[in-house]
Write a protein that binds this DNA or RNA. Structure first.
Lengths: 205, 205, 205, 205
DNA sequence: TATGAATGAGCTTTCATTCAT
DNA sequence: AATGAATGAAAGCTCATTCAT
């Protein structure tokens, strides 16, 4: 019973910290503030996490795991390349509504602020999806669904670039504003999804 | 204790700081370290800049100005939509070779860590290019060069997203590594440029 | 790393700081030095006081409260004007033996260095005693104990001036030395008290 | 001709610094600001004065000299004890109108802020007047004009205490305000002078 | 085991002082 | 001789981290 409380607490800390880190960045966030917002003492955080950075990376892992699960499911369920892409795009849009903070964490590791090893992080986070996207495109190409004069990896890269920007545009303040500059203050998400998919499909095939 | 290299020194401080900020972010960078690397005393930095943030934003402005000049020229010189895009892509690739730090500053403002007003920053930095890209695509559409079933603003947005990712992929550690995961360690820039352009042109038309 | 002597420690900080401020003034005093002398870390001072100024004013308040209590008691217990004055003078002399630092704090606010609002400070510190002294003298005048050709407020003012100089002469280095110049190195306090009282009583009546 | 300018400049620096020191204290005053207000460069100040403290003490000397001249004249011209005291009191009041800053400097050395040797300062500044006042009172006593049951030095001390408080009450913000609390916002100087003299004369004789 | 007061390294920032020009 | 840019020591202050309770 105590164990359960702990587990709950641990999750609460993680969520609160993710929120804080996503909103203020690693350095402007403070352990004290996270502890207070989580309703625990500072000491408890240091019981679970070696230091601030460790908590940061735990948040990151948590976010990435959750994100990757959602996207993985979207990819797995798809019967075709187009459906996979449609699914991934849609999953992003839906997921962003409730999990801005996770996307923001994603963005934060792409910056230099944490001092993390970029190589290792990228490998861990991008490796799998890169392989999947590339392989799916390759397969589609062998079926003649994708143009031959482009490398599948390259197309996967472009696709993922657009997907990444979609993440950020739906969650990070700067990118949100930037999207508003392009598309106006009220962005119709259905249209956005449709046109993005269309843009990609034309670009690919 | 001398008033030599004022002009030169000032530029040196800016460059060094841009490097440091790009590499370590606003908070992990320290004025002391920037001063030491610039070969000046701490005091001299505070002569030119009110505080650390002011220096940061000066670096940002400097980077954005330089970047925007290069991209602006590439856009202006273009006779057609395709040429504009090719020009912009190529300018990025060439520019990235010598000015990684500028692109990195660009990336740093898209993160939350600086605490800057995202809305204002985006307006200042993205406003112009958004207008230009959209207008050029609109014009091309009226000539039948662009598909009718997509909004020009949306296409411009997708294009700029890909361009933005190109910036980061050529300059920020995480994105560099990520590109390597997709495209291998030795990325042939000419091929990348060509295929990106092709992807975009197909996506648009 | 312990939460012992909170109460005691807090008082110790206040006393040490009062000593330091009285001896060196607000600006020559340093938080670091006060912390070291108090046997606490710098951080702990900032736990209790928002900043250096807040500590300074806390010391001031503490001193003034203590001083005002002592003088208040002396005034309250007096049956006549003369006794009140004798009591106040004597209280000063006795109090000065153990609480030089408090008197010094008193002096420090009369200088411009703290940047405090002089008007507000004076009102807070002098207001009450001014009213009391004036009222007591007025009452005595109505009994014919005080000459009629002088305003009670004026007489109260002169009396308080002499009392104030007594404070300083018993506590602040410069005033101490000055008193020695006038009265020799060994000042007999009983004589001083008696003659000051006599001087005042003659001046008043 | 250059020499003259220098001399003038020197005086200007001294006056400006005295003003600044009197208003803000030694530590809150800055050499830069004094230089700017004097219309000279920082270097010029360091040509004349070894450091900030030296300038401070030069201002002090200048103030004290000027003050002592005025008071000395008032004392010399007096034919009797009462006239001397009336003259000194009046000189204070008149002098305060144009030379607040000098009185303020006087006050500043009585505080600990400068770190000056209090003993030496007091000797230099108070020595002479202590001797004069005491001697004049002694002479008057031998003529039967002063009560026998008080030491002349003690009386001189009390008198000088009241004079000192008059200085401060006419120039320093805190003391000004304090006087207003006792005497109201509009203090009639003629009345003040008269009543103070009366208070003293009764106190003495 | 959980707490949160205490620690102190290390940051930004100021400004008296120097000295090349 | 005068200038004022440059210096850098030293201050105030914050906050990640520790550990007595």
């Amino acid at each position: 019973m105590n164990q359960k409380l702990t587990e709950e607490k641990q999750k609460c800390i993680l969520e609160t910290a993710t929120e804080e880190f996503g909103e203020r960045g690693l350095f402007r966030s403070s352990i004290r503030s996270i502890a207070k917002k989580s309703g625990v003492s500072v000491g408890v955080i240091y019981k679970y996490y070696a230091d601030k950075e460790a908590l940061f990376f735990a948040c990151l892992d948590h976010s990435m795991e959750s994100l990757s699960e959602v996207l993985g499911k979207a990819a797995d369920e798809a019967a075709s390349l187009e459906e996979m892409m449609r699914g991934l795009i849609h999953a992003c849009v839906v997921y962003a509504r409730d999990h801005e903070a996770y996307f923001r964490m994603y963005h934060s590791i792409t910056s230099a602020e944490s001092g993390a090893d970029a190589g290792e992080m990228a490998e861990r986070i991008e490796g799998e999806s890169a392989a999947i996207y590339t392989s799916v495109i390759k397969k589609a190409r062998s079926k003649g669904l994708v143009k031959k004069d482009a490398e599948p990896a390259m197309l996967a890269f472009f696709f993922d670039n657009l997907l990444m920007m979609l993440h950020f545009s739906l969650s990070c303040d700067y990118y949100k504003k930037r999207m508003n500059i392009y598309l106006g203050d009220k962005v119709d998400e259905a249209t956005l999804e449709k046109q993005l998919l269309s843009f990609i499909m034309y670009g690919i095939s």
